[in-house]
């Protein structure tokens, strides 16, 4: 069983849902990334998603686009990313998921990339532009390297396809909350709630379902938990805090924010 699967099992026994916190590595710089990760761990995040920037992030809104650009301009390189993960691994055994785009993996060769990622301590992968149709080689390499493949589904994904994607997914299934790119949203749509309930019914017994894109407040978390998600994924909201907080106060701010979100994942 993978670290991610273990985590979901552990949370279930505690009657909690997972808080998955996303950050962009190298934003605003590499040292701060380590500080932020410590804050997330101390605040009680269950899984950390580490973003590695891609020059053309088509699934991302302005906040993550900007973080990607900053990280790339500061010289983000995959070798540096792997060293950073090694450093993180020395401090914590929290499950780590890499989120980036297909070309980053493809360029290095799926197999070579994944064996390196696994060896430094990555547990799973999220590629928003990897569709199941194109995933044969990707899945083969991931399986060989014991990495979870977390696919995305959307509120407009039909049930047949939902089942297919769930079959290709390990760790958890990532449901996108909105028709749109990543970014902070102001409201929860009815179509999202319906989609969560439907997905729980169709594939919920096979795989945990996480909801992401636009989740930012404890109220969001409570609402999603109340309709049955197994995980909430918070991304752009973290980056906003990082953008707007002085370095000296950043870790404390991240700890506090993460704590309030985590509190809302505890059922009853």
């Amino acid at each position: 069983m993978s670290k991610i699967q273990d985590k979901f099992k552990e949370l279930k026994s505690k009657n909690e849902k997972a808080l998955i916190s996303y950050i962009m590595t190298g934003f605003p710089n590499e040292n701060t990334t380590l500080t932020i990760v410590r804050g997330l761990v101390r605040g009680g995040a269950d899984i950390i998603e580490l973003g590695f920037p891609f020059s053309d992030p088509i699934a991302d809104g302005p906040v993550i686009q900007n973080a990607s650009t900053v990280s790339l301009n500061k010289g983000a390189k995959i070798e540096k990313f792997f060293s950073l993960v090694k450093k993180i691994r020395k401090e914590t055994d929290i499950p780590l998921v890499l989120m980036t785009y297909t070309n980053v993996l493809y360029t290095h060769g799926y197999s070579a990339f994944m064996s390196k990622a696994k060896s430094v301590g990555i547990d799973g992968l999220i590629l928003p532009d990897m569709s199941i149709e194109e995933s044969k080689e990707y899945l083969k390499s991931a399986k060989k390297n014991n990495l979870d493949t977390i696919f995305l589904v959307s509120p407009n994904t039909k049930n047949d396809r939902l089942k297919k994607i769930a079959r290709a997914s390990t760790g958890f299934l990532y449901m996108v909350a909105v028709f749109g790119t990543t970014g902070v949203q102001t409201k929860i749509h009815k179509y999202t709630i319906d989609a969560i309930k439907n997905a729980k019914k169709i594939v919920g017994k096979k795989i945990p379902i996480g909801i992401g894109f636009g989740v930012s407040t404890p109220a969001d978390v409570k609402k999603y938990v109340s309709v049955g998600v197994d995980a909430v994924i918070v991304g752009s909201a973290n980056l906003k805090i990082i953008e707007n907080t002085a370095p000296s106060k950043l870790q404390r701010k991240i700890v506090n924010y993460t704590k309030t979100l985590k509190k809302s994942t505890r059922v009853n």
């Binding site: 020059s55 053309d56 390189k77 995959i78 070309n103 980053v104 493809y106 360029t107 290095h108 532009d129």
Partner: peptide, 21 residues
């Protein structure tokens, strides 16, 4: 260019060693 994935397709791309366009 080198083979890679951009804008929904696999094709030749002008990119660096890390796959950045």
């Amino acid at each position: 260019g080198k083979k890679g994935v951009l804008h929904g397709m696999m094709t030749y791309l002008l990119q660096d060693n890390d796959g950045q366009i």
